[in-house]
Design a protein around this nucleic acid. Structure first.
Lengths: 202, 202
DNA sequence: GTCTATAGGGGGATAGAC
DNA sequence: GTCTATCCCCCTATAGAC
């Protein structure tokens, strides 16, 4: 029985607003989604939205602040593996699964657009990118040392390009189509030494 | 000396508005760019903008309608070559050069967002994508027949993935960095038969 | 054709009751 | 904490003079 200042109920409310906002922002865009619409979708009034969030941009940021712990966990888990190339592919696979979320393309596009206008959001996004970048770069470097990855590659630049390909996959994601097989082919061959058969040639 | 209804002056005006709009839309987004700002940048009044374009969306579309003839020409020129893989790389190279335009990431993001809201714009974009898609698919098929490309690949799906990679490169384009070398590596290896050295192993 | 002025509508954020 | 009501700014698109 909620007494006062129930922090659980409060957190649940915030989360409900964030989720409703994510869906609407992805479908209709930031500027074309009014606080009133978000409030309605979350089952409360527009006044309450501004009780939980100082303004609309803060609400938008909350969508991505949720991702930071997930990215950290993903990198930590994947950099623990033995085989660097397999670990990279595991990371890519997991990120690709997120791309199959129906709202993924919309929300990616929207965040890129808004990041240029909101320095706070920019920081959140940059941190998320940096976390993944570090993970990929570490694994690429490790792969070069073990000889599984082409030593002609620069680890940081290679990490960036892996992210470029993933971003591309997010952009044109189709919930009905699993991007992972082709992503694996792209990345495996991108990383491999000039004439080696990739990883396991089957 | 311009007499009346000078069609040249008129076209130049339209073009000036379109160019100013492209820059501002890319930098600040569609909704955050007012007709007055575009007018000012193009050196006329907001009323005149609506003399040349029925509404703001039509103005946005005009930015991309310019691209259609360019894409057609590009495909025609590149499908005329002898070596299919080299032709694909030539197409990718040319598209990548466009990605080095400072406004490229912004305008790509913006068009993806707006295409979902404006069926007319959607048609323009779909046609441009289709033109490039046909070009790539034709070349992939040709490459499979000549034995230069892995026959395990489906031409249309492969064409889509080439475009995915290009879109990714556009998204994170940096005017100071030439994406072409890495794009070439990605695509060459993506296409090649399982154990062949890519194209020219040097 | 190009301008100025404005009608007309929408929505972010707040005030204040409950 | 949650609501309703509303202030106030901005912007698209048009009207009408020149």
């Amino acid at each position: 029985m909620a007494r006062k200042a129930d922090p659980e109920r409060s957190a649940a409310r915030r989360e409900a607003i964030t989720q409703a906002a994510a869906k609407l922002f992805a479908e209709r865009g930031f500027e074309n989604t009014s606080a009133a619409e978000i409030a309605k979708a979350a089952g409360l009034s527009s006044g309450s939205v501004f009780y939980y969030f100082t303004d609309k941009r803060a609400l938008f940021r909350s969508v991505f602040e949720r991702d930071l712990p997930m990215s950290r966990e993903l990198v930590q888990r994947c950099t623990a593996g033995e085989d660097p190339v397999a670990s990279i592919l595991a990371m890519v696979d997991e990120l690709a699964v997120e791309a199959m979320d129906p709202i993924a393309p919309g929300i990616l596009v929207e965040v890129l657009r808004q990041a240029g206008k909101d320095p706070d959001l920019m920081r959140v996004i940059a941190e998320n990118t940096a976390i993944l970048h570090e993970g990929f770069a570490t694994l690429v470097e490790r792969g070069i040392r073990t000889g599984a990855i082409d030593p002609a590659l620069d680890p940081r630049e290679t990490a960036e390009w892996i992210q470029v390909v993933i971003d591309g996959a997010f952009l044109s994601a189709d919930p009905d189509r699993d991007p992972r097989p082709m992503l694996r082919r792209l990345i495996t061959r991108f990383l491999s030494r000039p004439c080696d058969p990739a990883g396991k040639p089957a």
